[in-house]
Amino acid sequence: MLVDIRKESFNAYREILSYQESQNFSGEYGATASFVGSMRDFNEDRKVTSMTLEHYPGMTEKHLNAIAREATEKWRLLDVLILHRIGKVTIGEDIVVVASWSAHRKEAFESCRSMMEQLKSSAPFWKKESTTSGSKWVEKNTPGI
């Protein structure tokens, strides 16, 4: 299980591959589900140029670890990966990746979706968008279900 908060830009797909290879469990999993969230250049009809992600040091790490651990208790999973950016994020950069590995697709799909929705609704991160006309805190996330 890997949970990490990153100040530096990362490529979600390289991170999934790199973690998968480092775990040396090839042959054990038959299903990998992943969600990647990346930065758009628009939100609610506003042109966004960049954004800054704030978090609650200590609590955010603890909360993401709890989400990952609970998923491994609820579903039969081989492994779980959660990475999230903080700091200044520019257009096209990856913000979040959630991935899970299991023997069959049901556990992988369900756990990945559940972890992502929990992260969205309760992990302490806040986005502030910069636009050509100033900056603004994002007030709420769009519903995912």
Binding site: V96, K120, P124, F125, E139
Partner: peptide, 10 residues
Amino acid sequence: VAFFPPVTGG
């Protein structure tokens, strides 16, 4: 104790 607005990560 911490107080904050609704979270908007992900």
